[in-house]
Design a binder for these strands. Sequence first.
DNA 1: ATTGATAATGCAAGCGCTTACATTGCAAGG
DNA 2: CCTTGCAATGTAAGCGCTTGCATTATCAAT
Lengths: 340, 340
Amino acid sequence: MSNMRSAPTLDDVAKKAGVSTATVSRCLNAPDRVVEATRKRVMSAVETLGYTPNFAARVMAAKRTFTIGAIIPTMENAIFARGLQAFQEELHRSGYTLLVSSSAYKPDVEEEQIRTLVARGADGLLLIGHDRDPKIYEYLERQKTPALVAWSFIPDARTPSIGFSNRDAMFALAQEVIRLGHTRIGMISGISQGNDRARLRIKGVKDALAANGLPPEALSVIETSYEIESGADAFAGLMSGGPSPSVVLCGNDVLAAGALRKALQLGMRVPEDVSITGFDDIELARIVSPALTTVHVPHREMGLRAACGLVDMVERKTAAASINLETEIKIRASLGPCPK
Amino acid sequence: MSNMRSAPTLDDVAKKAGVSTATVSRCLNAPDRVVEATRKRVMSAVETLGYTPNFAARVMAAKRTFTIGAIIPTMENAIFARGLQAFQEELHRSGYTLLVSSSAYKPDVEEEQIRTLVARGADGLLLIGHDRDPKIYEYLERQKTPALVAWSFIPDARTPSIGFSNRDAMFALAQEVIRLGHTRIGMISGISQGNDRARLRIKGVKDALAANGLPPEALSVIETSYEIESGADAFAGLMSGGPSPSVVLCGNDVLAAGALRKALQLGMRVPEDVSITGFDDIELARIVSPALTTVHVPHREMGLRAACGLVDMVERKTAAASINLETEIKIRASLGPCPK
DNA sequence: ATTGATAATGCAAGCGCTTACATTGCAAGG
DNA sequence: CCTTGCAATGTAAGCGCTTGCATTATCAAT
């Protein structure tokens, strides 16, 4: 007993405290169901043995893990960081642990991660965006694992979502841009294939064009990966072919930062020669100069609400109501009127 | 059998395929130990039932999870993102899954996360930096969970580390700064308490002062949290009291970005009036203008090596050899000679 | 004291899987 | 035709925990 070769088990604790394993278990999970004196004895045994419950065993027996999984497209930039932080804080408050993995924007990787997390017994899952193979949703239903979508709001989607309307947000920004006289508009978007957020942001711009009587040709879109360099390259691409746009709307702040840097490198003044906008309003947007006009997303609130919603789904087994949060356009120096 | 209410188990598959559970298990884990015909039959049963192995049960029986845990101080900025990405990629290549959680730089949170991850059966753990309560290391040893430290290299530490010498890196940068004629040096550091990386970076600067015959008073250090705003505030603090430094060395690029922004806000020119340097060389360093002189850390290589090392520790049960990677000073526009 | 009611604890059956060991089947050598 | 030796498969014992139910202790009321 004194020099165990491996981690102590419930049995060891029970023996040491002179009680049954059931009592030890109760001490740990429902302390008030066991009398003070016994509890103390057990706890001290736990202490001296340095006992930690075996998670897998606990999960098997209890069928609950108090774990929520989240799969985000990337950790390489801060887009999801703040929202996730709030999500995790709220989860922690409710006694849940958050496990995060990132899919690098690859659907097959995402699917694997989802399966992994579910197989690991995640009580619920946070997913980013709605677009994914329907069989994944079927799988989730079969496994009875509640899932909640964030960073996108689509009413009546198969999975409830807590987010914002990417289309409306971008529509509003485009309206503002058009109001400033811009008629040749460039857009640097993320890959829209399998990404409703990117897709709907493009749609928002297109809708704004139409609403203002501008022809579809007024917009040229480049889709690229969400990296600074890609943003820079795409910007160069936009500026090289034919009549160059007077404003470039970017799918997120990272792309916008890349575009901005390239613009300055090319000797263009922002916003005098060309305007550039972002999306998300992460810290980066205020760090670059000129600061980025962008769409502010209420990341923290979204994370918090998502946590509450998901915990609810897990505990009451009720489908959470979707929530549409408001975004807000932050006008900063990178957007100006259309040059002559 | 035809309308199961819950997820199918090994037993269901075995029954459907007309074999024993052992055979099904072998089909999944050692396909070549079962003959072709049987395997096919089993696999098709797996398919039609939509069977997914229960992870907890598997872990309990096999005592392996093929999971590696990593606890990083923060996900809010990109400092750890790139290295972690490489870490995860390499892990994936070896068949492991990475689970990440963030401690918000709080030791007690970190301890809890470590216990959580271990209890969840992580086969190995990646930790950032060496400084932590010794009892955590004891716990890890007792649980026989191999751990590897990254982002810091300290030879002969209790836990092997794959990283770089924070002290040497900062020493080299300070040398360069001093060579440029600076004699009043400010430093904005992260909280050094419980953070060997921050501590050793400060030490690097102090050593450089000493090596160049400068008095300790030539350096004034402010310790603050790792956020942009903190960097800005600290910069203002440094500039307000007494003779202001001609150069401000920052503990990381985020702090430097904050300091830089504040400097520009205060109407100071960088580097004409004051020089500013960072650490890490994350993307941010090249985005701000002027671009930051900083210490380049080989994040991807570190992540990759750490993954190999950790997998090795897990599989061969051998303590990995520590590796000291080289950092490199990236001279960019934010550092200039000491103004008159 | 005795009796109930109730609180505290113990007993033991799983949870779904892996794996050491036992059994069976079959081809080749005697 | 009967052994032998393997390869393929089956049997069943756990892994460490939770929890429904059974048992025992406690204590107030009779």
